[in-house]
Amino acid sequence: MTEDTVLTTVIAAVREVVPEAEVSADTLLIARKIIDSLSLLSLVSLLEKDLSITIRDAEVLPANFETPLAIRAFLKTKGL
């Protein structure tokens, strides 16, 4: 899976969890309150399903989910 494909998947997942949000690669998801704790859990669950990965509770850190680009960088550590 290419980095562009992962980023596209991440942005699509954010839009699915928060349909009203305008999201691009560098959108500040947490700082702009696009995602909160509940939607973050939904996003993690969706990414796990869509990408066939497991994200441990200890990995659900604000730094890993600050922007779609940050999420892509985090997912790279998962082998994507």
Rank of each mutant, 00 (worst) to 15 (best):
E16M: 15
E22C: 14
L69R: 12
I11C: 07
T27D: 10
K33W: 10
I71D: 04
I34G: 01
I71P: 03
E48P: 06
I71V: 12
E3D: 14
L46D: 03
S42E: 13
P68C: 07
M1L: 11
A58K: 14
I35T: 02
D26V: 08
L46M: 11
V18A: 09
L46W: 04
D57R: 09
T8S: 14
T54M: 15
V17A: 04
N64Q: 06
A70T: 09
S24V: 15
K33T: 09
I71H: 02
L47W: 00
I71Q: 04
L40P: 00
A31Y: 13
T9K: 02
K33S: 15
L51D: 02
K49M: 08
V10E: 01
A25N: 02
N64C: 06
I35H: 01
L61T: 10
V60T: 01
A31R: 13
I53M: 05
L41M: 09
E3Q: 14
E59C: 00
L69T: 12
R56M: 13
N64P: 02
L7N: 01
K78E: 05
P19H: 10
D50F: 04
L28P: 11
I35S: 00
A31F: 10
T67S: 01
T77N: 15
E3C: 05
L69I: 11
D50H: 08
V14T: 03
V18R: 09
K49G: 11
T5V: 13
I55L: 01
D50Y: 11
S52W: 14
E48S: 04
S39H: 04
D26N: 14
A12Q: 05
K76W: 11
S37G: 05
L69D: 12
V60S: 01
T8F: 13
D4Q: 11
I53K: 08
D26W: 08
I34V: 04
P62V: 07
D50G: 09
E48N: 08
R32V: 06
P62K: 04
L46R: 07
K78Q: 08
T67M: 00
K76C: 12
E66W: 05
I55M: 03
S42T: 09
A21W: 07
K76D: 09
T9S: 04
V60W: 00
T9V: 03
D36A: 12
I30L: 06
D26H: 13
L40I: 03
A25I: 01
V44E: 00
A25C: 02
K49F: 11
R15T: 15
L28T: 09
L75Q: 01
T27N: 10
T5G: 11
S42R: 14
